[in-house]
Design a protein around this nucleic acid. Sequence first.
DNA 1: TAGGCCATCTGGTCCT
DNA 2: AGGACCAGATGGCCTA
Length: 194
Amino acid sequence: MDSVYSDIDSNSCDFFPHTDDEDSRGSSPLCQPPEQLQQQKKRRRGRARSEATVQVVKKNRRLKANDRERNRMHNLNDALDALRGVLPAFPDETKLTKIETLRFAHNYIWALSETIRIADLQAGKPGDTPLLVSLAEAPSPGSDACSWSSSGSSSSSSPAYSASSPGSPAEREDYAYLQQDALFGLRSFVPGIY
DNA sequence: TAGGCCATCTGGTCCT
DNA sequence: AGGACCAGATGGCCTA
């Protein structure tokens, strides 16, 4: 707001570089021919209008930007809702917050990968199950360039957020629950694996 | 009532 | 130039 007005103020200096005093000082109206005076008045009116126009244009631009930003955030929230939709629901059915959704999704993916890896080891024939192998060898959440803290690139490294989010989110991210649900999810989406 | 979460506004920066 | 993205500020709502 302030800057907008300050912009306008600074612009207005360009629009009105001279005060009436300056006008009368530099070249007295009495010394100017009437046509020149009228032209000057026209010019001044034109400038005044353009200042108002600039304000309106800036305001409209701001409103449009606000609208775009609102839509952008709505899209982001829609994506988060979609993510909540594919995550296992909790018995209490309390809606996950944004940060909880992201952390839970991170841990859930890790648990799924871990489950696949373990199942693959138990199967003992990695060559026969390229899907499982490729999934199991996928980098763990902590091994990429993201901020997840992890000691190594092994897919068995536990997600850092399990320990770093105290309170109810931690309970929600209980590893056993995730493992159990990961198994359920695998059975649902990859039938015939078990 | 304090604290957490959220939506919105806003200005700055980068990209096309 | 205009749009996308981002982060800070602000105010409202809800809960312990």
